[in-house]
Design a binder for these strands. Structure first.
Ligand code: MN
Ligand code: MN
Ligand code: ZN
Ligand code: ZN
Lengths: 134, 134
DNA sequence: GAGATAAAGGAAAAAAATTATCTTTTATAT
DNA sequence: ATATAAAAGATAATTTTTTTCCTTTATCTC
């Protein structure tokens, strides 16, 4: 269990109980939607405002604290920023898991005659997860 | 210049002037946002409803006529469905262009111990386009 | 081509998602 | 302990998307 107090302060963000709870939930669940996050937060703070969720997710996005994962045919999920990685999304149950893809190798094998200077890649694989196959 | 009358009918969709105009705009501009599409449509149909745009884009998505491209840090764009491909998005001007990535090769080089059955991939590269480099 | 009809368009309202405003509370520095 | 700027909560406002309801029209059949 990580404590994000210092990390928040390093970004000049006050380490409020609400923010620490958000980071805890992200840390525990990995990839969460706004609604899920709100529901979880309501358990701890029965009068928390949805606006607080949005304001915090947005300020954490600005500070590169949190990343948005855009998923084909469904809503975005959010996660704590970690090393660069890609995602697997289950078509059946919606579960999102991390996967490491050799982006560099891909770029070497991709014909880029367009002279586009690539800086980053967002890769989301879709399919059926291990659990849903059974 | 393509005519989408038949394709629409094959999906049991009436070939209305509005729909043909939408396919024309998609065909001409490649990747368009809802707002852009609406503005363009207003030129031809000065009383078109935004609801018509949404209803048609949604029905075309359902029929796999049109695809949504989700882009990190910006709004989605829509395009006519064609052969499988990926995208380059310019951080500077927002331009979206197609690129072909050897997905199969990537999968071979990606360690998938998670036993996830991958069916498709959504790949969006971000960077600086040729024009914006000058 | 005229008539029948189900689908689609337009206008407006409703719903859902997100952001802004304003007052109260609180984390943090002194 | 106090001061203060930032954040929370409540609410309103805005933006985005969907729904409803009535009118129009594309298409089928004759
Ligand atoms: Mn992840
Ligand atoms: Mn494309
Ligand atoms: Zn699954
Ligand atoms: Zn550019």
């Amino acid at each position: 269990m990580n404590n994000y107090t210092e990390l928040l302060r390093q970004h000049n963000l006050k380490a409020t109980p609400q923010r620490l709870a958000i980071t805890d939930i992200l840390n525990m669940h990995g990839h969460v939607s706004i609604e899920f996050l709100y529901e979880q937060m309501l358990n701890k703070f029965n009068s928390i405002s949805l606006a607080t969720i949005y304001k915090n997710i947005n300020i954490m996005l600005e500070n590169a604290f949190v990343q948005e994962v855009k998923i084909p045919h469904s809503k975005s999920v959010y996660e704590l920023t970690k090393e660069v990685h890609s995602h697997l999304v289950c078509d059946n149950c919606g579960a999102v898991q991390d996967i490491t893809v050799p982006i560099h190798t891909i770029l070497e094998q991709t014909d880029n005659t367009q002279e586009f200077e690539i800086k980053s890649a967002s890769v989301v694989f879709t399919g059926i997860c291990k659990e849903c196959k059974n």
